[in-house]
Design a protein around this nucleic acid. Sequence first.
DNA 1: GTTCTAGAAC
DNA 2: GTTCTAGAAC
Length: 752
Amino acid sequence: MDGKGGDGEKEGKRTVLLLILVGAPGSGKSTFCDQVMKATTSNRTWIRICQDTIANGKSGTKIQCLKRASDALKGGNSVFIDRCNLDIDQRSEFMKLGGSSPYASTSDFSVDIHGVVLDLPARICISRSVKRSTDEHSLHGGKAAAVVNKMLQKKELPKLTEGFSRITFCQNENDVGDAVNTYANLGPFDSLPSGCFGKKVADSKVQLGIMRFMKKIDPSTTAIPDGNCSKDVSGTKPGTTEICQPGEGPTNGSNPSKESKQYGRDTSHHLSSKNIHTLAFPSISTSDFQFDINMASDIIIESVGAFLNKTENVRLVFVDLTHRSNIFSLVRSKAMKANIDPQKFLTVVGDITKLSTEGNICCNVIANAANWRLKPSGGGVNAAIFKAAGEALEIATRKCAGTLSPGNSIAVPLPSTSPLYQREGVTHVIHVLGPNMNPQRPSCLKNDYNKGCKILHDSYSSLFENFANLDRNRKYINREGDLVDILNIPNKVANADLKTKRDALTEPERIKKCKGDSEQFVTRKYDLGDNSLRSESSVELNVKEKVWGSWAQALHKIAMNPEKHQALILEETDDYVVLNDLYPKAKKHVLILAKLYGLDRISDVRKEHLPLVKKMHSAGLRFLEKFLKEESTLIFRMGYHMIPSMRQLHLHVISQDFDSPNLKNKKHWNSFNTAFFRDSADVIEEIDNTGRAVTINDHDKLLSTELRCHKCRSAHPNVPKLKSHINRCSSSLPESLLQNGRLFSSTFPNAQ
DNA sequence: GTTCTAGAAC
DNA sequence: GTTCTAGAAC
């Protein structure tokens, strides 16, 4: 940041800064101050005013902070206000120290008020707060999660109208590092451009998991439908990936590096969003194939613009290894000029094979600038992607195609064994071959840019088309069989014309809100309940766990200490226990409860758990067979709730009469009669095939969908009326369930 | 997960 | 007035 040329310099006045930090405990405010002070290269003097230490190293008052800040500013120092400052009231007194204050008007320096918002994910703040021991911060230990979340509820992001001349929003460690550099390099006569920088669009105030537990907000999704992008961004290495969003901030920056650092934004919410189908792609043909970058950047922008205009719920990420590349600057500035939606088209500096781990950008599809043989040879992006994806990509590519001609692309599903799949959540690599202008390489166009431009155009069109097709297929696969529940139409119709039904989805249904970016974990080093024996060994694990309410622990407690609950247990093995559901929703309703610690729901299940879930399936079969002997007219279904309310993986074995006074509300009904109920056979198949079970992001919609008879699909206004209908409905259960081994009765054989 | 209950729907 | 839902509390 050059920082020169501001008003301060013009008027020959020194500008002192009142830098108000805004952030929850554990967001890194003190560290930020320390780093700036350590790294300051100029003779600007900084004084940190920390309410936690202001009274001779002990916690003090806001008034003491105000007085100390006032004195420091009078002395010509720049000042950090190191306290949470999360709401307007907390900031307002400090704002009065700048602007029209006597310090500004009577001294030979002006007071400029800046805000730096450390808006890191709540779980990171909590994790750090929990880890603190007896340092200057009073908040540590087990209270941290509750306190941080409570404080974040009150969070009001600062606005320029409060009196700030500049506000920098930091959503991840990269942003923080950039802000540290910006202030560390700021000389006493330098000033920074005014305005908001890196401001996020949506304001997710709280750690959703805890708030969901507290029922303060709408529950949201945790689905990891294809390609697990779930991760802890606290592990993000700083400074490795920079994110730019066209259209943000000043446009006169001569140094793209500085700009990109400034404008990095909202990685916690948007960039890591798992639910948006995202393609990351490098520039095609401009490196080794020596295509003119000016023309290439025009084609990229044109292709991107056209694609985004016609395609919903997708995101494109242009990736270049370095911000010093001219193609990067060109694409970025042209995207800005073309007014391309910066939420849908990002320009990122970083390694395309590490976007998730190093940049917190989940891209389930990446494009490869391939060679015509589709081989890992050569260098650049092609070699890097093949190297990162391992042999699995080579094998998968060979299965799809032998060669590729210029202007074409081919999408290759990445096997789940590939490190790129496992580490980065990449499910597909699309190889693209662009035009070649390099005489040293095959099929050189010898400077024929008429042909070249057309081929490059075709390359991007083909790439984006392939990407869009993957999205369509993804919807198809995920909804196969479940479509009926989402659309509330009979299964037969749904299966007869899936494409028509897919197209019939309304826009709001198609465009999923991308909420709930895994903001549901806390670092759990304490309070493992009555699982004390295990906690001793897992204390040091410091694992991220979903927050389960105390009422949701009942099954977990039984699984961990079955001997204490013998009265409830029908059968016990080393792997599971069987018990009657405490509130059965049908004549027969038992649970097969896994004993394995850490296996809380189907999204935790991996291939290594396959033997366990198969054993649970077999146990369920044995039990329902026993019930069928007792009452031969019953029909059973076995399955899991997509998102269970109770911790500890449990398989429901439930008769399809739903004749029970405990079945009282819509949620009860829909949890067993929509796609929210995942048949055991399907779950096993999915884990076997892909390594994990499908969960969808809008499971809440399934639970609140209208009430329909599970046999004849008729709709009913409320639960009592539905139940009364079910009693007399003589239709058979849907054929799809019969055919796929999902139903179990004494009258027909089961596939499983 | 259930229970309780305010207030919406009928 | 009664039934039912949905949100809060646990």
